[in-house]
Design a protein around this nucleic acid. Structure first.
Lengths: 125, 125
DNA sequence: TTAGTTGCAAAAAGTTTGCAGCACG
DNA sequence: CGTGCTGCAAACTTTTTGCAACTAA
């Protein structure tokens, strides 16, 4: 089921290709005249993340950042450290590396997280 | 310079091969009769992390977890999701993949984080 | 009527900061 | 003395929870 808050959050996420915090989403909604409360934003993000509709990552500052995934498939993110822009990339090579490395050490049920950071072509150094 | 708190923290970290939270370190020190305060633990971890003497990562729960690195060189972590044990692995393959993927998209000054999770041989499924 | 959603206010939990006391050169 | 480290308490931030009002079938 999809609630009003969930739809509002998804709309807000559609506006951007960056990872944004819950607080940021809330502020953005408020700016657009939407009266959805911070609590509902958090609750909406929680269920959207649970169902895999949005990607979550933890910033170094300790807050959770969210983004609507373009693809349902497993992928990784290439994030511009200057403007925050995100590009989704497939990880043919890494997947293989992760599996192999892990099984070399006898690990089972492998999963992994990979984030690549850099400065994108549009951002001057 | 190395302070008393820093030495206490390093000692506590030497005891384990897991990523541990600041609070956990503090509790552990207290348990051993050390009277170092939580504040000093945080301050010590901050400077140790800054100088690269310990590795930091953010748990899904949003707390910072720390670990003393065995090597100064760039490496990644293979973490057991059951017992928390950590194995440091070199990432010959990933490094190359990250660089290549990033430059394909015109990104400069690449850095990356990789964490592999699984169940280690000592932990029954 | 009833099950689910909402938003405020309050509470948690992790971390940082202000500050007075201590240690030690 | 003076500089820096310490630890307590208070402040702050992000996220969660309690709860009463609201909504829609």
């Amino acid at each position: 089921m999809t609630t009003k808050a969930q739809r509002a959050v998804i709309t807000a996420l559609a506006d951007t290709s960056r990872f944004v915090s819950a607080q940021e989403i809330h502020a953005r909604l408020r700016g657009n005249g939407d009266s959805t409360g911070l609590t509902s934003v958090y609750r909406a993000l929680q269920s959207l993340a649970e169902s895999g509709d949005v990607d979550v990552l933890r910033t170094d500052a300790g807050e959770a950042a969210y983004r609507r995934c373009e693809t349902d498939q497993h992928h990784h993110h290439l994030v511009c450290r200057d403007c925050g822009r995100v590009i989704e990339v497939a990880g043919r090579g890494v997947e293989r590396w992760a599996l192999q490395t892990a099984s070399e050490h006898g690990f089972r049920d492998i999963s992994h997280t990979v984030e690549v950071f850099g400065s994108c072509p549009d951002c001057p150094g």
